[in-house]
Amino acid sequence: MNTRGTFKCELEMLVNGRRQNVTIRSADTLLRVLREHLGLTGAKAGCENGDCGACTVIVNGLPIKSCLMLAVETQGSSIATIEGLQNAPIQQAFIDKFAFQCGFCTPGFIMVCHALVNTQPNADEDLIKEWLQSNICRCTGYEEIREAVRSVMTLE
């Protein structure tokens, strides 16, 4: 504990396949640690209360809103950020289907869609819509995003 009463701790994280050691406050969110300690700025700080999904990353294969998860909760977990996808098919599908406009929400959507394709490769239209409800885009309709997901699912 430091003089301000804030607990600091050492945390070993597995992010994008690489072990990272960071010293953080016990109250730091995963979003803040990724952005401020590791320089991974793809997850965006949008609403910071779990509504918009711009901060979505994948933890142990599932999409997680990193603004709602404490970094210390990730001990022993595998974390993937947009920077770690390395040319995943869904990234090209977003380009091909024009599934973005301003781009602020795009990393979060790509992470949700990547997790959906990997965990539910035969998802029907209702399941796709359900998964996409976790993220908000204020610039475009969701049809192009759904088309991007469907196009990747038909590749497999």
Rank of each mutant, 00 (worst) to 15 (best):
117 V>M: 04
121 P>A: 05
109 F>D: 00
105 C>D: 06
28 D>T: 11
67 C>Y: 05
26 S>L: 13
116 L>C: 08
77 S>L: 06
127 L>Q: 15
106 T>H: 01
51 D>Q: 14
81 T>S: 03
65 K>D: 13
151 S>M: 06
54 A>H: 00
25 R>T: 10
130 E>Y: 09
51 D>L: 15
34 L>V: 05
8 K>E: 13
2 N>S: 10
113 C>Y: 02
33 V>S: 08
98 F>D: 15
77 S>K: 08
127 L>G: 02
109 F>L: 08
59 V>K: 05
54 A>W: 05
123 A>G: 02
123 A>D: 06
153 M>Y: 01
64 I>L: 15
80 A>E: 14
51 D>P: 02
51 D>I: 13
149 V>W: 00
70 L>T: 08
136 I>N: 04
53 G>T: 07
40 L>S: 09
86 Q>Y: 11
9 C>F: 06
80 A>S: 14
48 E>C: 09
146 R>T: 11
138 R>I: 03
70 L>M: 11
116 L>A: 01
76 G>N: 08
36 E>M: 14
75 Q>F: 12
64 I>E: 15
117 V>P: 00
140 T>N: 01
40 L>W: 02
134 S>E: 15
114 H>C: 08
82 I>Q: 00
147 E>I: 03
146 R>G: 03
117 V>L: 10
56 T>I: 10
41 T>E: 12
53 G>E: 07
145 I>A: 01
99 A>H: 00
69 M>V: 12
110 I>N: 00
54 A>V: 01
122 N>T: 13
27 A>N: 14
133 Q>D: 13
85 L>P: 00
154 T>G: 09
108 G>K: 03
5 G>Y: 07
57 V>T: 04
17 G>N: 03
76 G>L: 01
60 N>Y: 05
28 D>Y: 02
68 L>A: 12
111 M>A: 09
38 L>S: 11
30 L>T: 09
153 M>L: 11
126 D>E: 13
57 V>H: 05
21 N>T: 12
